[in-house]
Amino acid sequence: MPLSQPMLLSFLTVLLWGAWGLQSKIIVDRISPWANQALFSLGLAPLLLWPLLSKNLHCSRGSARRGALYGFITGLLGGVGNIAMYLALARGGKASIVIPVVGLAPLVTVVLAFFVLKETLNRVQILGLAAAAVSIYLLSI
């Protein structure tokens, strides 16, 4: 049975981000984490064409200014997160451990969404929090 388009795109995302994890480990042995982050944006630049040419670009659901501010903050936090991840890889962290630990980011998102966005935590997510805690313990000792 052929995969649907959303599923193909999901698997493509898995491959792209998975490859980024490998690329990150390969490059930190050749260039400093800071310089790597500085050059990271060169790869983002051509991708700007896609949103800039999209007819949805100016479709606001609320305050466009606030949306832009949160988008900008997301970029700043993402950039600092990247540097921390590159430093972890440069200081001896294996890609096969650092990337799964970093991949636990939904743990923080779910907890913050509970407090900031007033989203509820369902039982499955609470189980996920417990699994994340066990994982962090096992990988940190």
């Binding site: 700007l48 949103p51 479709c59 609320g62 949306g67 949160y70 997301t74 970029g75 950039g79």
Partner: peptide
Amino acid sequence: NETSFEMSFVWFCLAMF
């Protein structure tokens, strides 16, 4: 929640720059 994904991505990239 406030703006389009496209605009959000543009600002994300600007912060990276």
